[in-house]
Design a protein around this nucleic acid. Structure first.
Lengths: 104, 104
DNA sequence: ATGATAGGCAACTAAAAGGTTGCATGTCAA
DNA sequence: TTGACATGCAACCTTTTAGTTGCCTATCAT
């Protein structure tokens, strides 16, 4: 789980996931296209995404195809974000109350 | 949004949010309690959480009370994770297909 | 076979992150 | 008012991160 959060912390990596979300199964060169980064930098980002299991790759001849694995993102939604949904309104209530009554 | 992702990337900070989720409105000393970190380290983490708007504070005499702000987490759920929910089954399909047919 | 294309590996650098120590300040309680 | 408690500030250190450059390897098309 920590690896996933860390992987998602970087904007470039989130952009790569966005790209794969828009079109799945792209090659490394595809993914580099138009980015202000060297190919090697992108490779490293993809390696981190792969280690976090957010991306899976398949070699196809001299190309490496990248596929989005949506499961870890889904799990963060389910197991982590949902936890804070419960009690969300209560927390907002606490906050509002405390911010309003400075003279308590 | 980037600040929120970055703030959530660290396990200690997520633990602090957990603590506030369990009991809202804790002081700095409360939050330090039982952690293998100096108070100053915790202060820094809280500052990052505050900058990301995940925590709001109210000074109360010599104490500083920390309140969870659940809104940014909720927004990440709504605006980011939900995007990947759409097309999630399609992506899983792509992935399964590609992983199975290595002889394509 | 040979050149172009797709990608891999390794060493290096700069900056940011996470943490520490030491000291200063503000507030409460006796 | 004085000591104890709660927090703030700043300098410093170490490790990680994000990125680079340079070169090597594998595959495809002609």
């Amino acid at each position: 789980m920590d690896e996933v959060f860390k992987a998602l912390a970087d904007g470039s990596r989130r952009a790569l996931l966005d790209r794969l979300h828009a079109r799945n199964g792209q090659t490394l060169s595809d993914l580099c296209d138009g980015l202000a980064m060297t190919r090697q930098a992108v490779t490293k980002h993809l390696a981190i995404l792969e280690a976090a299991n957010l991306v899976a790759t398949v070699k196809h001849g001299r190309e490496k195809l990248h596929y989005l694995n949506p499961v870890p993102i889904h799990e963060i939604g389910e197991r982590w974000i949902r936890k804070f949904e419960r009690g969300r309104l209560a927390a907002l209530g606490d906050l509002k109350r405390k911010l309003e009554t400075r003279d308590e």
